[in-house]
């Protein structure tokens, strides 16, 4: 047994302490844990439109999982999810780092520019997705007009209608929103690197690139890992941007896992297979958040 008075001012736990915390915990159990458990139950049943309200649904064993894992749609969505997430995260991190390094220098108006860039991140995704659709419009969109003006384009490109350009488009829209988020976290990381470290390296004859690759990047590693992890988790669960820009199309070119699960349940009313898809998909963020949580605890203890 640990001593009950572990820290000064922190008395042994009176029962009322639990009364403070319990309502919030019960709320989370009811609105998150219970639905997740409920999904697992659904995923073992044959649930169609009738069973949604009536309840029940015949026990189907692993049939839904077999249908999903064996089916081309789920595999394609898993692959698209990975491509979309990895490319978006890489670009967002690179852009965020470039912006952070730039903003780490002192110059007039720096604070204002930092705030201006953050606008892209705080904008609701329903809004930014609509803007991107309009910018990328094949006939009247600003992007095609700009490219035509520069002489780079002689025919209209319908960005969201062709599979390859559609995926690239939703990636660009995603990176536009998430790069400022990476920027602000990386900037905080950069600012925690003491100035004398750079000065010493300069005196020792290190050039700007050497200072960046030998000093800044290694010292930024812990922050970078956090940023990459958070970017991955948030990008992996993207729904709004893609649903509003392409609905997962053309065909299934931009159907990532959350879109696939949504369409399975809400468009085709196959809640059983939809539940199986979300349950499998949950494993990825779950594993990453456990990893993240352990890293955070270690940090707090250290």
């Amino acid at each position: 047994m640990k001593p009950s008075r572990a820290r000064a001012g922190r008395p042994s736990v009176p029962p009322v302490a639990y009364a403070f915390v319990l309502p919030a915990v019960l709320f989370m159990v009811a609105t998150v844990l219970y639905p997740l458990a409920f999904t697992v139950d659904l995923s073992f049943r044959d649930v169609g439109l009738r069973e949604i309200v009536a309840g029940g649904g015949e026990f189907a064993g692993l049939a839904n999982y077999r249908a999903e894992l064996g089916g081309a749609e789920f595999r394609s969505a898993l692959w698209t999810s990975m491509v979309y997430t990895v490319v978006s995260v890489a670009l967002s991190f690179a852009a965020g780092l470039a912006l952070a390094v730039f903003l780490n220098h002192r110059f007039p108006g720096r604070g204002l520019l930092r705030s201006a860039l953050l606008v892209a991140w705080v904008l609701p995704s329903v809004v930014s997705a609509n803007i991107w659709r309009w910018l990328l419009d094949g006939t009247y969109g600003l992007l095609n007009a700009a490219l035509r003006g520069l002489g780079l384009l002689d025919a209209d490109v319908f960005w969201l209608v062709q599979p390859a350009t559609a995926l690239a488009s939703v990636i660009v829209a995603t990176v536009w929103s998430t790069a400022p988020f990476a920027m602000i976290l990386l900037l905080a990381g950069l600012q925690s690197i003491p100035g004398p470290v750079h000065e010493a390296a300069t005196i020792d004859g290190a050039g700007p690139w050497q200072r960046f690759s030998r000093i800044t990047l290694p010292l930024l590693r812990p922050v970078s890992v956090t940023v990459l992890l958070l970017l991955f988790v948030t990008t992996f669960k993207t729904f709004d941007t893609i649903y509003l820009m392409t609905r997962g199309g053309p065909g299934d070119a931009t159907t990532i896992l959350p879109i696939h699960a949504y369409l399975e349940a809400f468009s085709f009313f196959r809640f059983g297979t939809g539940a199986a898809a979300t349950t499998i998909m949950l494993l990825i963020p779950l594993a990453l958040s456990l990893f993240y949580f352990r890293a955070l605890r270690r940090e707090e203890v250290a």
Partner: peptide, 12 residues
């Protein structure tokens, strides 16, 4: 960290 659809589907 969990995707919103994971909760939205059973909640519906």
């Amino acid at each position: 960290m969990i995707p919103a659809i994971n909760v939205a589907l059973p909640m519906f």
